[in-house]
Simulated assay, not measured.
Amino acid sequence: MFKKNALKTACGLAAAALVLSGCATQNQNIKGQPSVYEDVSTTGAVGGVGIESQDVVAMTDKMMRDMLANPMLTGRSTPPRIIIDNEYMKNESTSVINTNMLTDRLRIELNRAANGRMVFVGRHFSDMVQKERDLKRDGAVDGGTIRQTAAQAGADFRLGGRISSLDAIDRNTGTKSRYSQITFEMVDLELGTIVWSGLYEMRKAARDNVVYR
């Protein structure tokens, strides 16, 4: 009888150990929700009142189309040299955003669509260019396949802009509203005149607890 009870106890403990082991293994495999790809031109699962991917896509597409329709930029017999970077893109708003996302996307998409009607100067790469120029002129490397020039390319126009915002909060409901205004302006680098201007504005409201980084 004792042996029989001992055998039953041992079997019961072994079965319990297997169940616990299975549960532990199952819990170890749980890694949380899998990543989900979202369309960058639409509102995602996480959204607030700040500038988000769909806003970046919409505003840069609008500015690109507007620039391409401007004869002072695309109707010249000699394509103008243009600088588009974030050097003079100021963020004075309460939105946290890397302004490179605006200028990089605008420059790249515009360069593709302009098809030679504009020439883009990579002033943000000037250090890289100067190092290579110095190596060529010192004889450390050959001259490459492109003719040498007296200096790096100068630009005719450069993009500047500003991001501004106006916030309002309903303390009773915790709802936040933000009006955002983003301006883009192309400046003549000899005269200082503005040859093209673009404006993008939006207002969003939400019970905002989204953190932008």
Rank of each mutant, 00 (worst) to 15 (best):
F2K: 12
N5V: 13
A6L: 15
L7E: 15
G12Y: 09
G12V: 07
G12L: 13
A14Y: 09
A14L: 15
L18V: 15
V19I: 15
S21G: 15
N27M: 12
N29G: 11
N29R: 10
N29Y: 09
I30G: 00
I30R: 05
Q33S: 12
S35E: 10
S35Q: 09
V36K: 10
Y37A: 14
V40Y: 05
S41V: 03
T43Q: 12
G44M: 07
G44A: 13
G47C: 07
V49P: 10
G50D: 14
I51W: 05
A58L: 08
A58H: 05
M59Y: 02
T60L: 06
T60A: 08
D61C: 05
K62Y: 13
M64H: 05
L68D: 10
N70M: 10
P71A: 08
L73V: 04
L73C: 05
T74M: 08
T74V: 15
T74R: 04
G75S: 07
T78R: 12
P80Y: 07
R81P: 00
R81C: 03
I82L: 15
N86G: 07
N86A: 12
E87T: 14
N91T: 09
N91D: 11
N91A: 03
N91S: 03
N91C: 06
E92T: 09
E92H: 13
S93N: 06
T94E: 12
I97P: 07
L102E: 08
L106S: 11
R107H: 06
E109M: 11
L110Y: 07
N111K: 06
A113T: 08
A114M: 04
G116D: 03
R117M: 11
M118S: 10
F120K: 07
V121T: 05
G122Q: 10
H124P: 00
D127Y: 07
K131N: 09
R137H: 08
D138Y: 03
G139M: 02
A140Q: 07
G143C: 02
G144I: 02
A153C: 01
I163Q: 04
I163G: 07
L166D: 15
D167H: 04
A168I: 00
T173H: 06
G174Q: 12
S177G: 09
R178E: 11
Y179M: 02
E185H: 11
V187S: 01
L189W: 02
T193F: 06
W196F: 11
W196G: 06
S197A: 10
L199W: 05
L199S: 06
L199A: 03
M202Q: 12
R203Q: 15
K204M: 08
A205H: 04
V210I: 14
V211C: 01
R213T: 09
R213L: 11
